[in-house]
Design a protein around this nucleic acid. Structure first.
Lengths: 151, 151
DNA sequence: TATTGTTATACTCTATAACTATA
DNA sequence: TATAGTTATAGAGTATAACAATA
């Protein structure tokens, strides 16, 4: 056996207050509303989700190397090749030589690519409508509590 | 154009308090810690993540139809076939005829399948260690605020 | 005629390994 | 020798359409 959690622990864990909070956090972050905006952009633009996610982490005004994009996405270098291929095929980005190191290529957004990236980044960062239910004070409280959970 | 969000809205949105809370919620729910336990179970058991996720939504003691599993996973019926195939191949579940409707098949966990499902469900529900940083009172406050964001 | 599940097929996402060009 | 990117390939995840059996 590879797990030493004792039997009948499930119910206790689920009732523990932090487990309940954890459940709520995941429920909120998976609200259908949550990813709807980006999915809509993917559908409207005809761009698959993976290259669209690349646009989400690409800075709008400063070109970035292939390797840096791989780092930001936490994926393999070879995969970035296919992501940028997809962007290039649709006229959203291009590759340019690095000025000093000729092994390196930098990804440059086209005007169209920049526009789409900006829209996607805005849509992605926007909070779902349910957040209107909280007062300004409640939002501050929530923010401070959540901040304690991060490094 | 398919998006009417005005230019230069990005910064305002990102600074809006609810956008900040939204960012934090997603950051917390994506802590590496979060899915680590389930991933470990997947690696240890040799079961790919997709069928393991099926085990997460399968009730431990009450059999469920193929269709109902598709509903719970929010996926197509045909895909459930391959998920249950994967479970069956590893001796974790079997198919049985529905007693009254012979079109329907019910998924029955084996003893081994039930054990694995229980361990996976416990691991999945457990809050990451960072939650220890909050007091009992803070957890209650957090719970109540988050609950307001759900229907 | 409508519904349950299966099969065949195809597309997206992603990694590994081998390779090329450059450093 | 090490690093950046590409190519070839393969496997996981998932959907669509056509189909068989049953209702």
């Amino acid at each position: 056996m590879f797990c030493t959690v004792p039997r009948n622990h499930a119910v206790r864990t689920a009732q523990a207050p932090e487990a309940e909070v954890w459940r709520l956090i995941r429920a909120v972050s998976h609200t259908p509303d949550a990813m709807a905006a980006c999915h809509q952009i993917a559908v409207d633009s005809g761009l698959p989700l993976a290259p669209l996610r690349a646009l989400l982490v690409l800075p709008l005004d400063e070109p970035v190397t292939m390797r840096e994009l791989a780092r930001r996405l936490g994926c393999d270098n070879s995969y970035v090749t296919s992501l940028v291929d997809a962007l290039e095929k649709r006229g959203l980005a291009g590759r340019e030589q690095h000025p000093t190191d000729r092994r390196v290529k930098v990804i440059v957004l086209t005007g169209q690519g920049r526009d789409l990236a900006e829209r996607a980044q805005i849509a992605d960062a926007a909070a779902p409508a349910v957040f209107d239910r909280l007062t300004e004070q409640e939002l501050v409280t929530l923010r401070d509590l959540l901040a304690k959970l991060l490094p």
